[in-house]
Structure formats: structure tokens, C-alpha cells
């Protein structure tokens, strides 16, 4: 579903993303790990079409990232670490807006948002302003909204930042459910316990992908007891900081 070859993004002399290659299969949960400044965000921006790569190639859902970014945008969902719903709009109005942006008809929007609210068991709050809803719920809603147009790939940039452990568990249950329905999930996170929920993870250090495998294989390879240890032993060699 995602296929990237030798992707590089250079700002002057600085290689934010240095020659990375990977593939992600349909329905896979792909964890994209790395310390701050390792180049994760730049890489995601390229994949989402917000930024152009300096060199390299890749496809997302069969569309070329260098030339078909408009096509790609129709097939992806995106949720970023900063809160991405409008606080002064109601839950339903937010859903309507995002559905509308992605070209769903009013009927489709109504049907899908009803179904999703029901699944979240959040129907009674449909007309509440998002600003009045607790953070955990907002993140879950933001995820739901990013899924409203049934994208083939959904990018989650640190979706669980600032969320309590219980909500994080619920959030990951939602991610797994979405993946099992065939959506590819591309997720970055700081929480290494979350990395263990991924099917495969990559660890980025100084713009390069230093490791890429299933969490259990990585734990075995590095003789560690958890992903946290794996991450620390890989990231130890980082030169860049912030």
C-alpha cells in the first residue's frame, strides 16, 4: 500500500530524511518511531503531499508521491499530534465539514457519522461543541473523523500525546479495528509500549531508518526485554539532538 525507495529530503546541507526505503502492506499497522528531530515529521509530510522530496520515489495506494499528490490526498486520512478538530464547531458539524472536504454527499455523511457515533457510544453529545469535550474523547473523535471518508491509508502523527492510559488503550483498540477492516495505519508515537501494538516498526535515527521489523523480532535481535530497550539501544548512537 505504501512503497518508498531512497527517499531523501534535504534542506541546504542538512539531510532531514536520508535515503529511506520501506514497504507497508494493506491492513498493516506500521509504527514509525524515532526521537525528536530524527526526521519522522518531514517523512510524513512528504508522504502526505505537504512537502516534496528532494530525491527518491514512492507510491501510496498506487499513486506516485512525486507527481500525483492530489490523487494521494483523496486516498489518505491524517490526524496530527496537535488537536485537529474545530473546538467552536459541534461534533456533527466537524464530521460534516471533513466529510464535505473529501467529497462525500450529505447522505453519506449523515449515515457514516451516525454509525460512527453509535460505535463510539457518543451519540448524545453529537450537538456538543468539541471544545467542551474531554481531550481523550476528542482524540478518539479526531481519529473517527479522519476515517470518515474511508481512506486507504491513515497517517497518525503522535495521536495519543497527552492522553491518559485508559483512553490510549481504547484508542489502540480503535486502530486495530480499523486495520482489520483493511485500512493501512501509519503511526508515529513516543510511547514504546504502544510500539508493541504495531505489526512492524521502523526506528529512525538521524534521518535514516536503522531498524525495521516486527516488535518481537527486534526485541529478540537486540536481546532486550521491551521495545523501550530496543529503542534506547538504537537511538543511543544518534548525533542529532532536537
Amino acid at each position: 500500500m505504501i512503497s518508498v525507495r531512497n527517499l531523501t529530503k534535504q534542506f541546504g546541507d542538512f539531510k532531514a530524511v536520508d535515503n529511506i526505503s520501506f514497504d507497508v502492506a494493506k491492513g498493516e499497522i506500521f509504527g514509525f518511531l524515532g526521537a525528536n528531530g530524527a526526521g519522522k515529521t518531514t517523512a510524513i509530510r512528504i508522504l502526505c503531499g505537504l512537502s516534496k522530496a528532494t530525491s527518491g520515489s514512492g507510491t501510496i495506494a498506487g499513486c506516485d508521491i512525486m507527481s500525483q499528490s492530489e490523487e494521494i490526498k483523496k486516498n489518505i486520512g491524517y490526524m496530527c499530534q496537535k488537536f485537529s478538530l474545530y473546538e467552536d464547531l459541534t461534533v456533527l458539524e466537524n464530521m460534516e465539514l471533513y466529510g464535505g472536504i473529501y467529497g462525500l454527499t450529505a447522505k453519506e455523511i449523515a449515515a457514516r457519522s451516525e454509525a460512527m457515533l453509535k460505535e463510539l457510544d457518543f451519540g448524545e453529545h453529537r450537538n456538543d461543541l468539541v471544545g467542551s469535550i474531554p481531550t481523550g474523547w476528542r482524540q478518539k473523535l479526531a481519529f473517527t473523523v479522519a476515517n470518515l471518508h474511508r481512506p486507504k491509508v491513515i497517517f497518525l502523527d503522535e495521536p495519543t500525546g497527552g492522553v491518559d492510559p485508559l483512553t490510549r488503550r481504547q484508542f489502540w483498540a480503535m486502530i486495530r479495528r480499523t486495520a482489520s477492516e483493511g485500512t493501512t495505519v501509519f503511526v508515529t508515537t513516543h510511547y514504546m509500549d504502544e510500539a508493541e501494538h504495531c505489526d512492524r516498526v521502523s526506528v529512525m535515527v538521524d534521518g535514516k531508518i536503522m531498524a525495521l521489523d516486527t516488535p518481537s523480532a527486534l526485541i529478540e535481535k537486540y536481546g532486550a526485554s521491551s521495545m523501550d530497550e530496543v529503542f534506547r539501544s538504537i537511538a543511543r548512537n544518534a548525533v542529532r539532538n532536537e
Partner: peptide
Amino acid sequence: EMGTMEVLLVSPV
């Protein structure tokens, strides 16, 4: 500032 612009820019609009 809110980060909603990113989300809009990722959309096909």
C-alpha cells in the same frame, strides 16, 4: 497555530 491548517492541507481541497 491550532494545527488544523495541516489537516486541511492534507485534504484534496
